[in-house]
Amino acid sequence: MDHPTPASRLVNDTHCANLRHKGMYVTATPDSREHDFYDAYDATVYWCTQTQKPLGPDGRPVHADHCKGGRGCCEH
């Protein structure tokens, strides 16, 4: 048995290895027509595997925009 790692359009190699969101664990298919019915929006909730919370080890909120190079607690 192999052990897949989460994949995501929002979290990739440039992001911290500890950043997670639900979409990484749900094997969804992109809803290609979604934006015919509403504009882009972001309801993604992130968490850090090291704290298991929406806050990183440094106490700041985690997000794909923040959890990448330059943030001290990031791991790659």
């Binding site: 019915f37 509403y38 929006y41 972001d42 309801a43 993604t44 909730v45 929406p54």
Partner: peptide, 15 residues
């Protein structure tokens, strides 16, 4: 607000 974290986005207008 999603409290001490993000995630409060929602689609608008809807459909």
């Amino acid at each position: 607000t999603g409290g001490a974290g993000v995630g409060a986005g929602f689609p608008l207008p809807y459909i």
